[in-house]
Each structure stands twice: as structure tokens, then as C-alpha cells.
Amino acid sequence: MSSSSIRRRSVAPYAFLAPAVLLFGAFLALPIGYAVYLSLRTVKVRGLGLGKGSREQVWAGLSNYSKAMTDPDFAASVLRVAAYGVLVVPAMLGFALLFALLLDSPRARATKFARLAIFLPYAVPAVISSLLWGFLYLPSVSPLYYVFGKVGWEVPSVLGSGSVIYAVANIAVWGGLGFNMVVIYTALKAIPTEIYEAAKLDGCGEISIAWRIKVPVVLPSLIMTFVFSLIATLQVFAEPVTLRPLTNTISSTWTPLMKVYRDAFTRDDLHSAAATSVILAVATFVLSFGFLRLVQNRAFSQEN
């Protein structure tokens, strides 16, 4: 072999990776750096703020952060999203696990149809699913209200101030259930069936096989779906934004991301928006890494 092929071989992997690395730099690394930079800056206004040179960007230290942290709208939106996450993530993953186990069970019927039907919402964009559910929530459209009306019950609107969070949570569960079910189901399919035969010889029933063998084996998949669901939950945006025209109970700062959008594009306060998004990103990282760490430690302690 000539030396040219060795040299070529050493350059080749970098050439294969170059497009990905360049795009990563331009659309992930650079924007993150820019967000951090913006969050540390502010616009200083001299005099009335009119005319050229009266507004200049200066270093702001952490003042944008303290402003964001003490903003009551921000605190309210964070609490709302936390409550929303507590509703969505366990319900979505719990049902996803249940349906995956049932699909995998040899005793259930109509599994092909059910798998397709439950996966179907993944094909529906969050905006469209919010739109569909939004109409179904309206008392004049909803089949449930039709029944309530016939029976003569007075039921308050689902989109009222107390229950709108459940209304949004239902849309997220509906949209994410099927995808997570398929993730768990794929992991279940990878289990060699000999394990079950052995367990059956030992007298295990379907339920105890599911609980003692299947759930522990798919735990890594459950952990990953949990982390991804958590990240998605913290960023909830499309659903409440789409529902807004149908109700007056969703404010423009209903979720943290909606507040970022309002600050950046309605109020033109990029620096607050940047600080808020950095806080959210850090919180996401701490939560997802913290959770993975916690899980890993437990996994290792079992090994020893």
C-alpha cells in the first residue's frame, strides 16, 4: 500500500463527519452560545431613548436571571408545567407500558388492529391534535356534553380555568402514548421466548411473568422514554398556543416557553427571553441527567 492511501484513510472519517459537525456547530452550538451571551447583556437607554446612539447594549451580569427568576409570571408558568408533567408523564408511560404488555401477551386478541390504532396519533401533529380535541371539548360539539344535555346535567366546560390543564394533558397523552408504546413493545419483542417457557414451567402466570420478567427487562427503554417525555413536557408549546382561540383561560405566559416567545417577539425583550430559555435548558439538563445518574447508581448497586 502506498502512503497516499494511508493519508487518505486518515482524512476520510473527518470528511464523513464534516457536514454533521458543521451543521451541529451552526444550528446547535452557536445558538446555545449566543443565547448565553444575550442573557448576560441588556439594552441601556439614555435620556428618552430616542435618536441614534441613545440605546446601547451593555453587560448586565446576572440581572436578567434575577429578573426572570423573580417574575411572578415565570414562577406561575413553571408551577403549571410541573403539575402538567406530573399528570402527563406517569399517565402516558403507564398506559404505554400497559398496552405494550397486552400486545405482547399471547392471550390478547385484535392486537394488530390495536397496535395500529394506538400508534396512529403519532402521525397527527400536535397542532392538529390540539385542534381536534379543542373542538371535541366545546360543549356544542362534544358527544359527552350531548349526553349530559339529554340527561339534564350541568357540567362546566373542560376548557374552564380549573380543568384546562387536564384538557391540555389529555392531548399530550393522546399524542405520545402510541410512540412510547411502540418503543416499549420493540424492547419486549427482543426478549427471547425461552425465558417465558422456563418461567411457565416454574408455574408463573402471565401477570407475574409480565411483572417479574418483562418489566425489568424493558426498564432501560422505560428510562429513556421517561427522559424524552420529561424534556418534551418542559417545552410544551404547540398545544396551549393552538387552544388559545377556543378559550380565555390560557394566558400568553401559560407555559415557560410561551413566556419566552412573548418576551422575545411581542415585547422585543430578547435578553429576558434568552435568560429564561437558558434557565429552562439548565433545568432540563439537571432533571434528565440527574434522573439518569440516579437510575445508573441504582443499577450499579444491584450489580455489586
Binding site: 452557536l30 445558538p31 446555545i32 415557560p256 430559555s277 437558558v278
Partner: peptide, 8 residues
């Protein structure tokens, strides 16, 4: 999270 990317 896409939130940190969107504005910048």
C-alpha cells in the same frame, strides 16, 4: 431542548 435554540 429546542427552547434554548429557537430564539438565538
Amino acid at each position: 431542548p429546542s427552547v434554548v435554540l429557537a430564539v438565538p
